[in-house]
Design a binder for these strands. Structure first.
Lengths: 190, 190
DNA sequence: CAAAAGATGTGATCTGCATCACACAATTTA
DNA sequence: TAAATTGTGTGATGCAGATCACATCTTTTG
């Protein structure tokens, strides 16, 4: 799908921008494409952008001192991703973003977002609504992690995003659920 | 401290409102006080407000089908709390809010927030910034939960909020960390 | 297309935390 | 201030999930 059209429809769900305003806002974005396996953000780097996924699938993840990986998010088309902590505080990234499939993105720099928010009240409204939604989703996931066992959360995840079942290696789904791949495998027999 | 002054200084950190604008915005809030042990929101109710803590300490929590409690947040002065999922989607609350100590609050209804956001670009900016911060904090907590053992997370919590150590029963701290009170107790001997 | 790299099955063993049970201390409330 | 409620200390026991080890099977790449 056309990146501009996808973004337009995505934003239209929460904000009312005129044609001209949207065109102006869209100027802030840069299109990029990546091959499967490529890194978009590497932990330790300075970063400047957040990303809107146009096609493909990416993962946002943290790797701890023992090389154990935790997946924070699988981002499909119309999702956003970045290390927001690093982006807003200007510190180095502590999480990485990598491509699970070939991927097309629209990049928006921190400065460009902030000036678009200043220029267009509706852009600021869009990002407020978006962040509120992310916060709510994150709280829900935290609660589910504390409250439900792995099997339940696995089924919950696959129900919510059935595409993941075939698109993403089980290893990464385990890393999203915070369990070992062996444990995830054994759920089937239980 | 004077509620109005506390809110004013809190908001001034992220948004620029003139005296008149702030006065106008402040009209949206209603002051309330509660006794220790009182409920501010009870799961199952319809809700209409978010709350800014002026004095005291409150807890946001979820109780599952087995009566097990999970604490999502301890809110101290200058913190905000609500069931944002219910508030934004208009559904019934799934979490409750209760007072750990006597508490003074400023209540802001969903409608009042939304119209203030429409009226004042800077108010929308304030809430965008606030929600971004909440999202980042929530992601950090999720990661820490998956990555670190209970002892580490307990120390992390007490370092971040030393007041909690004496103000809040250990039972509730355990419910925040997602472990049993027995386990929390045994950490001291390890 | 052959070799290397990555993903998935499967067993054996170890461990952190839950759960149950009960004693005692501290704080509310009548 | 006595009784009731709520919080904390401590042992015994059980289980979900981690870790290690190794055997396929599948996909990528030279």
């Amino acid at each position: 799908m056309d990146p501009k059209q996808l973004l337009k429809e995505h934003i239209a769900k929460t904000a009312k921008l005129s044609e001209n305003e949207f065109d102006d806002f869209f100027e802030c974005f840069t299109a990029k494409s990546y091959k499967k396996g490529a890194y978009i953000i590497t932990a330790g780097e300075r970063i400047d952008c957040e990303y809107f996924v146009v096609s493909g699938c990416i993962k946002t993840f943290y790797v701890n001192d023992n090389q154990k990986m935790f997946v924070l998010q699988f981002a499909m088309p119309s999702c956003w991703a970045s290390d927001y902590s690093a982006l807003y505080s200007g510190t180095r990234a502590t999480i990485s973003i990598g491509c699970i499939t070939d991927t097309e993105l629209l990049c928006l720099s921190n400065n460009a977002r902030e000036s678009a928010c200043r220029k267009f009240h509706q852009v600021e409204h869009f990002f407020r609504t978006r962040m509120t939604g992310e916060y709510v989703a994150s709280q829900k996931r935290l609660l589910s992690t504390m409250n439900n066992d792995v099997k339940y959360r696995y089924e919950e995840l696959i129900t919510l995003f059935p595409e993941l079942y075939n698109m993403v290696p089980k290893r990464l789904i385990a890393a999203y659920l915070g369990v070992s791949r062996e444990t995830l495998y054994r759920l089937n027999n239980t």
